[in-house]
């Protein structure tokens, strides 16, 4: 609605310098929830990076005889697990696993999926058909099922966490290809792409210098949302016993461990559970905020 009126009255005709960054900040921080989400993510990153400094105990160190399944206390803020390991420390190290799995999978999938989508969309025809049908086929499998299958196959060749990363990457490639494909199709219709061809640009220049940067804002939103989904999936997988090898700390595995002491030691599964929920929620909220802030329809307006 806003857009319609501004084009009606056409005050965009006179050039006003509007700082893109300022506009981005204003829209992005307009909603309190987004700021909160961003705060959660900053905490997550800090926890992951400075885990050795922040964790009060070694997360792998087994406790002495009497130290298993301790209730929260001054000494162990969130108590200990069955092996006597400090829950808080494991939670902090778990952030590392979660972020690592998330970021690496997203990057790997992006590196493969985005070019596939651009190539399919740009060239069209047979190439488009082959790539997109392959992606459709991959998409037919539910993400978790695909990951389970890959994990079973790959288990012999890779260590736990890499199995998860590979499995999740493969699972989300079609998502990237699909979105990029759609974006490419719409960006391709712009005259500036025709202009590139008229100037004699090579295809790769058109695809990666002109289409890709213009597809970037929506892709960043996708990446952010995907990170949340991946962390959830990683938790799901490690809950099912696939993933980081013991004694490594992963939130999903911690939930599974704590699940057995549901009644007496609720903190044991509540803490990682809440961590997962909070982080996934934060990624989604921030993704939402990014989408609004990067909306090209708002560009050039104050």
């Amino acid at each position: 609605m806003v857009e319609k009126h501004t084009s009606d009255i056409g005050f965009s005709e006179a050039p006003v310098r509007v700082s893109e960054w300022r506009r981005f900040r204003r829209v992005f921080f307009e909603r309190k929830l987004v700021t909160f989400g961003l705060g959660v993510l900053v905490l997550l990153v800090i926890a992951a990076f400075f885990a050795p400094l922040l964790a009060p105990y070694d997360p792998y160190e087994l406790g002495d005889a009497g130290e298993s399944l301790l209730q929260p206390s001054g000494e162990h803020l969130m108590g200990t697990d069955i092996l006597g390991r400090d829950t808080l420390s494991r939670l902090i190290y778990g952030a590392r696993t979660a972020l690592m799995v998330g970021f690496i999978s997203v990057t790997v999938a992006g590196i493969i999926g985005i070019p596939l989508g651009i190539i399919a969309g740009y060239f069209g025809g047979v190439l488009n058909m082959v790539i997109m049908r392959a992606m459709d086929a991959l998409m037919c499998f539910p993400m978790l099922l695909l990951a389970l299958f890959l994990a079973a196959v790959l288990k012999e060749y890779f260590s736990g966490i890499w199995v998860v990363i590979i499995a999740l990457s493969v699972a989300i490639i079609p998502g990237y290809a699909r979105v990029t494909h759609g974006l490419t199709l719409s960006i391709k219709e712009n005259d500036y792409i025709m202009a590139q061809r008229a100037m004699g640009s090579s295809n790769s220049r058109v695809m990666f210098r002109h289409i890709l940067p213009n597809a970037f804002p929506p892709l960043i939103v996708l990446v952010t949302m995907q990170l949340g989904a991946l962390i959830l999936a990683e938790a799901g997988l490690s809950f099912l016993g696939i993933g980081i090898d013991p004694p490594g700390a992963a939130w999903g595995a911690m939930v599974w461990d704590g699940y057995r002491y549901l009644a007496n030691n609720p903190v044991l599964w509540l803490a990682p559970g809440i961590a997962i929920a909070l982080v996934v929620f934060a990624f989604n909220i921030v993704g939402d905020g990014l989408r609004d802030a990067l909306d090209p329809r708002l560009r050039g307006l104050l």
Partner: peptide, 16 residues
């Protein structure tokens, strides 16, 4: 040879 387009909005790459 060169081409000049009709639409001055869509013929320039907004990211350049």
């Amino acid at each position: 040879m060169a081409l000049i387009f009709q639409d001055p909005y869509s013929s320039l790459d907004p990211r350049q």
